[in-house]
Write a protein that binds this DNA or RNA. Sequence first.
RNA 1: GGGUGCUUAGCUCAGCUGGUAGAGCGUCGCCCUUACAAGGCGAAGGUCGGGAGUUCGAGACUCUCAGCACCCACCA
Length: 1110
Amino acid sequence: MAEQSNRKDESDELLKRADALLTRMRGAGTPAAGSAAREIPTLTEAAAAQGTDPGIPTLTEIVPAERLPSMPASTGEVISRVQAQNLEHTLYQRLKRDLDQQITQIVKERFMPDIGTALDAALAKISMDVKADINSMVRASIEETLRAQMKNLRKPVDTETAPQEAEAAAGGRASADPSPFAAALAKSYEPAAIEARWYSTWEKNGYFRAGLDESNPQCYCILLPPPNVTGTLHMGHAFQHTLMDALTRYHRMRGYNTLWQPGTDHAGIATQIVVERQLEAEGISRRALGRDAFVERVWRWKEESGSAITRQMRRLGASCDWARERFTMDEGLSAVVTEVFVRLHEQGLIYRGKRLVNWDPVLKSAVSDLEVESEEEDGTLWHIRYPLASGAAFLVVATTRPETMLGDVAVAVHPDDARYQAYVGKEVLLPLTGRRIPVIADDYVDPAFGSGCVKITPAHDFNDYQVGLRHRLEPWPIFTLDARLNDNAPAAYRGLDRYEAREKVLADLKDQGLIAQVVPHKLMVPRCGRTGAVVEPMLTDQWFVKMDSLAKAGLDAVARGEVRFVPENWTATYNDWLTRIQDWCISRQLWWGHRIPAWYDSEGNIFVARTKQEAQARHRQAMLERVRAGVRVTASDLRHDEDVLDTWFSSALWPFSTLGWPADNPALRMYLPSSVLVTGFDIIFFWVARMVMMTLPFTGKAPFREVYITGLVRDAEGQKMSKSKGNILDPLDIVDGIGPEALIEKRTASLMDPRQAEAIAAATRRQYPKGIPAFGTDALRFTFASLASHGRDVKFDLSRCDGYRNFCNKLWNATRFVLMNCAGSDTGIDEQLPVEPSVADRWIVSRLQRAEAEAQRAFREYRFDNLARAIYELTWDEYCDWYVELAKVQLAAGGEARSRATRRTLARVLETILRLAHPVIPFITEALWQKVAPLAGKHGPSVMLARYPEPQREKLDEAAEREIALLKDLTNACRTLRSEMNVAPSQKLPLLIQGDRGRLEAFAPYLVALARLAEVVIVEGPLPAAGAPVSIVGDYRLMLKIEVDTSAERERLHKERLRLEAEIAKAQAKLENRDFIGRAPPLIVAQEKERLARFAATLAKVNEQLQQLA
RNA sequence: GGGUGCUUAGCUCAGCUGGUAGAGCGUCGCCCUUACAAGGCGAAGGUCGGGAGUUCGAGACUCUCAGCACCCACCA
C-alpha cells in the first residue's frame, strides 16, 4: 500500500481541484454561481487587493484592522530590507492564525450550498494535513504583496543591487535612532512566531532529504524507532527525538551524508484493540463484522489518525527525511516480511508446532514472553489432600490454582525427600475426577516449600510442562481458548470460567474434607501487558523462530564490538537475555498484521511460500510425487494460515526493510549499518536485540554501530508518566502552553477508571494552578538535552524549561544588541581594512574554541547535558556577561580599527554560537542566523547548510584568557569593595590601585565602565591610608577613594570621641583620687583600670576611623 | 534468587584518570545601568546515605551496612 507516500499528493490534488473550481466559478460559469464566487478572493487577491477592486474583499475585511500591523503609507518613503523583512514577518504571523479559518468561513458563507457542502467535506478532510501548505500559500501571497508594496515604497535606488548603500543609509539612522534595527527583532523572544515560519521552509527546500553522494565516505544514519501509527507523541518520544534530531543536524552540518529514517509501526495488538473498542462503542463486534471488513476499518482508522504523530514531530523540529517515510504494513515492507519469513523457514529457523505458550484468553491470542508482565498480588495457598489409590493415606499438595488440579497428570516429590520416598511409583486418586495419577520424583520440587508435594499440570504450567516431558506424561488440557473448562474436565465443571471453576472445585473439595490448610500467600500473577488479562499457559499450534543460532550471532556481534552500547552497562542486560533466550513465538491470532505466508492442504500439509501461486505449485509438485509413489491423493484448495505475525517481527527488519532491501541500492550501501540507535532500555529485548539478530544473517551487517540507551522520562515526583496516574504531559502543551481547565480535561478524558478523575483533577490543579505557560520548542529541546546525562532516568521539571526559555531570550537579546551595533556598520568583512583586536577579542575567540571542542566531545560521547552546558555557559557567562560588556567599552572609546575589530568579533562569535547551538535549538538559531550571518560575512539560505564549527586548538590564547581572568577578578573586587563600603549604585568613585602600570592602563577603561568607577588612579608605592577596606587580587592592591559625604559618619564618630574622652577623664580623675585609691577594694580599682584601658582602646579606633574619613 | 543503577545545597542534577565541593531553579538583600526585569550584582545554604579500609590526601578507589528505583527469573 502506498497510502503514506500518496497522502501529500492527494492533498495537493485536492487543493488544485479546489483552486480550479474557484477559477471556473469566478469565470464564465453559471451566472448564479459566478456572481457568488466573484466575491471569493484567492489568497493572493485577498492580500494584495487593499481595496483596489470593490468586488474583492480587502485584507481588512478578512482580518480585523486592529490585527494588522501598521503599514507605512505609500508615499515613496524609504524602506530598508530589514524593515521589509520585519514587516513581512509580523504580517505573516498575524495573518497566518486567522486566514485559514477565515477562508473556510467565507467559503461556507458565500458558496452555493451544494458546492459548499462538497468543498466543506474536502476542506474538513484535508484541513489538518494541509495546514502547512496553506501556510506556504499565505506566505507566497504575502511575499507577493510585499514585493508590490516595496515597489511603491522604495526609492529609485535598488537595494538588491546596492545593499551596502541601503543598509548604510538605514544604519546611519540607527545610530541616532535605533528603531529600525530594534524593530528588526521583536523586543522579546516569541517562539511561536519563529517556529511556525521555519519548519516548512526547511522541509520545502529539501534540507532533510537523505544525502546520497556515494563519493562522500562519511555517512550518518539514525533510524527512528517507529512509533505506533495511531499513537500520539509523549514525553519519551519528544526526549529521544530531540537527541536524534540534534545528532542528525550536527552531522548534517559536519558535511556527512545524512539520513534520519522516519516511519510508523502498525502495532498489531495495540491498534486492533483500539479499533475493537471503537466498534464496541458502536455496538458492533469484530467477529460479526468479519475479517476483511475489520481490517478495512483499521486501515481507515490508520488513515485518519496516522499522521498525528508525524505532525507532532514536525512541531518539535525533527529533521527526518519525510520523503522516505515508511509504514511497517506498506507493500514494500510487507514483501520484505514475507521474504524473510520464507527464507528463515527454508533455513529451518522458523517452524510450526504445538507448544505451551502464553495465551491471553481475552484477546484469544498467543503473546510472547516479553509481553507478559508479572505483578505480585495477594493470593491463597490451598493445601489439598490427594488420597492414595492403595489405601487411606493422603498426599497433601499445595497450590495457588486449585482449578488446575482437574488437569493434573502426576504428583511430584523431591527424589531425596525421605518423607515421600515410599510413595514414589505409587498412584494417587485425583479427587473430583476419579483419575489415577502416578507419584513421581523430580529435582524440580523444593522440599521446603508447602508440603513438599507438587501437583503436575503440564498443559497449563511451564514448569510442569518440562516435568511432564521428562517423565513422558501426556498433558491433560482442561481449558478452552477463552479459559473455560473443556470436555476433559468432569461434566459438572464444563463450561465454567476458570474462576468460577476454582470456587466450585474448592467447595467440592471442602465437602469431601480434602482441604487440609488454607494459607494466605503472595504470588506473582502474569498478565498480558496490553489487555491486563491473566495469561493462561495453553497448548496451541504456533509458529516459532529458532533462536539459538541467531542469538549466538547477536552475542558475537556485540562481543566483537560491531554493536556498542552507550552506556556500556546495558551490554550485560543484552547478553544476559540472549544467553537465556527461548524460541520466539511469532504467530498471533489477530487480524491486524502481516498474514503468515503459509498455506495448508486438506491433509494439513504446510506450504510456506511468497505467494499463493507459489504455494499451489509446491502443492501440485508434492501431490505428483505422491501419485508417482502410488499414494492416492485428493485434490483440494489451499487454505491460507489465519494468523498474523508479531508486530516485532516486522520491526526487527526495520534497519534494512526501510532501505530497499533486498535490491541493492545506494541507500542500503551507505546507511547500513546505521550510526546509532537512540532508544529506551525497555525495548532492548523487544526490538534492539531482534534487529541485531535479524539484520546480521540477511545483510551480513550489523543494524547499527552504537545503541544509545536513554533514561525514561518521569514526572517531577519521579513517577512513571502514565494515563492512569494522570500525570502525563503532552510535549506540545509545553511548547504551546495550556490552560488549567484544558489540562485537567485532557488528563481525565477517557480514563480506564473514571473514579480517578477527581483525584487527578485536584492534583493537577495543585501542581499547575495556572496551567502551563508556552515555552516554545527550543526551550523544551534545550531542557531535554540538559537533562540527558547517562545512566539516570529523567525527572522532568518544568522549572528547568523556564531557565532555558530565559536562555533563548538571552540569546535573542544578545542578537538584538549585536544588530543594533553592527548592522549597517563595518564589521570587518573586508580583510584589507585594518583591525586592532583587543585582549578581550582574543579571549572570547579562545573561549569559543574551547566550547567548540567541548561540544564536539559531548556529541561523540552522547553527553547532551555537557553539550547544553557548554553552549549555555559560553553564551551567557562569557559572551553576554563579559564580552558584550567589554565590547561596549571598546565601541565607546576605541578608534576605527578597534571598533571594527570589536564589531567583527561580536558578529563572528555570535554567528558561531548560533551554528553551535543549532542542533539543539534549531528554530531560534535559524531565525537569528538569518540576521547575523551577513554581518559575519556568511551567506546562505539556512544555518542548516552552514558548516558546524571545527575547533582549532592552535587558536587557544591562554595569555588572553589569563588577562581577562585577571580583569574579571579586579572587577569583582571593585564590586565587593563598593558593597562593603555601602556605596550607592549611582555613586561613582575613583579607584586606587597599586600594581603593574602597563596592565592597569589597559584595564582602566573596562574597570571604569564595569565597576561603575569614576576613574582608576594608579598608585606608585603603598596605598595611602584611607577609610576603605583594601582588596588584594594577585599582585594588585586596590581600594576605593571615598569622597562620599562622610559628614554624618564623622559627626557620629566625633560625638563618640567626646563621650569617650569624657569617660576617660572621669576614670582618670577617679584613679588619681587618693580617697578612692585608698578606700575602694582592690577589685573595684582593677575594674576601673580595665574600664579606662577599654575606653582608651576604643578611642584610638575612633580616632583612626576619623582620620581615614578625613 | 540473579542483575543494574541511584543516595552530593530547600528542589533537579553535574562533578572526567583521587588534589581547595559546582550549576540551574528556589530563598534573601540591593539595583527598572541606554540588548535583555524572561535582566544585573551580591549573600546565605553541603561533616557528598552510615561505617571501615587503601592513601600524604577520598565525593571519586576497595569492602561493608542501610535506603530507594528498575530489570530478569521464579516455589507449586
